[in-house]
Amino acid sequence: MSAEREYHCEGCGISVQTEEPSALGYVPPAALEREMVLCQRCYRIRHYGEIGTVNQNPDIYLQKLGEIAGTDSLVVQVVDLFDFSGSWIPGIHRHIGDNPLLLLANKIDLFPRSTKWGRLREWLVQSARDLGITPIDVELCSAAKGLNMNETITAIEKYRQGRDVYIVGATNAGKSTFINRLLREVGGESQDVITTSPYPGTTLDAIRIPLEDGKAIVDTPGIVRRDRISEWVSPRDLKIVVPGETIRPKVYQLNDKQTLFLGGLARFDYVRGPRQPFVCYVSNRLYIHRTKLDHADVFQEKHCGGLLVPPADPEILPPWKKHVISLRGKEKQDVVIPGLGWIACGKEKATLHLWVPEGIRVMTRPAII
């Protein structure tokens, strides 16, 4: 490789090398002559749909995020609207310094048409404030479908005021998809510039995309959240867990002493309370099984990895942990499982047990739909 020039993969940002085919960043020497240099991994993702895990140190990505504090820039935090709690970057206010933050809620195409967007936007603003950030504005869009992109582009140009724009977010929030859509809408690009895939960790280093005024849009590596289920499953299972189309909510009228299995990833026990509806907002491809609570333990032991999938291999998950949840009965609440979805509960007092792999955060919130 030439000592005069350091090459970077234009798909994921990693420094490329020509010596070790099994290592990250490998390209055949002849590929350095191409106009667009892609590492072997990005080439295989784009042309063959191959996906693989990448073992990277999450602390390195946090260090890169912390470098933003020393810049004068606009920060655009992309969150997955369907997985807001799982795609938020904890402590982001400490990493970006005094730079303004524009909150971009992606994947609105996953929500039902009946969604009250004004109310949801207000919920986003309040949730961000509760997490330590007062965003300069909030935009909702779908990068995959191109929905509300004109409004989003206008907002970015309004607030950047001639500065660089850093696009940040957790893995799989849709940062790179958003930038590719942005470049198609504004720059007329006919193909994706940045490599995307449904598996976390596709972008490996910062990618600078020059703007006409000498500034740049910077795509940063996704921040890893090990406290959400989507980080633990295989690439094949991830295609089942992560929604790819508008959610069709599944409604269950449950009596107490009934159980719902969300594949082999979570178990929802309705322990005590009057008959009431529970609505599952999860991927349409995820199998949900209802059974009696008295039979749940035996059923789980017999069918995890078989009928109850994903995961195909239950051993990849940490041991399950029980979370006891008491519904107040004053308002409708959601029980949220980051990286998987949520269950909207009825308005009656109830006691629930939610079983998820140890380390996965579980929370309740006022119903957002």
Rank of each mutant, 00 (worst) to 15 (best):
D205Y: 06
L140I: 14
W117G: 14
N172C: 06
P210V: 14
L124K: 07
L204V: 04
L104A: 15
A206K: 10
T177N: 09
R225Y: 07
R160T: 13
S127C: 09
P221R: 01
E122V: 06
T202S: 09
T202K: 04
T152R: 01
L102M: 11
G187K: 01
V165W: 00
G187L: 00
D192I: 04
I133H: 01
A143R: 01
R225L: 07
R129V: 14
T115W: 03
R119I: 08
L102E: 01
C141E: 05
L104D: 05
R129W: 08
I108G: 05
P135W: 06
P200F: 00
R119G: 14
S176E: 03
P221L: 00
W117C: 02
R181S: 07
L110E: 11
W123Q: 15
I156L: 06
T195F: 00
I194T: 07
R113M: 10
N180M: 04
I153V: 15
I167H: 02
L211D: 08
P200W: 00
V165G: 06
N150R: 13
L140Q: 14
K175A: 09
L147W: 11
L182H: 11
V165R: 01
V186K: 02
R129P: 02
E139I: 13
A144K: 12
V193I: 04
I207Y: 00
L131F: 11
G214W: 08
R181C: 05
L182D: 03
F111T: 14
T220E: 09
I136M: 02
T203F: 05
Q191A: 15
E151Y: 03
T154P: 02
Y166P: 01
G162L: 06
R129Q: 08
E212G: 15
I133V: 15
S142E: 08
Y166T: 04
L211F: 05
I194Q: 00
Q126K: 13
I217V: 15
D137W: 03
I179R: 00
P210M: 15
G188K: 02
R119A: 12
T134A: 09
S114L: 06
Y199N: 11
A173G: 11
L103V: 10
G146C: 12
R184N: 11
P135F: 06
R113F: 12
P221M: 08
D109I: 12
L182I: 10
N148R: 06
V186A: 12
A216H: 11
V224G: 02
R163F: 06
S190L: 11
T115V: 10
S176C: 02
Y166D: 07
F111V: 13
S127Q: 13
V186F: 13
L204R: 14
R208P: 08
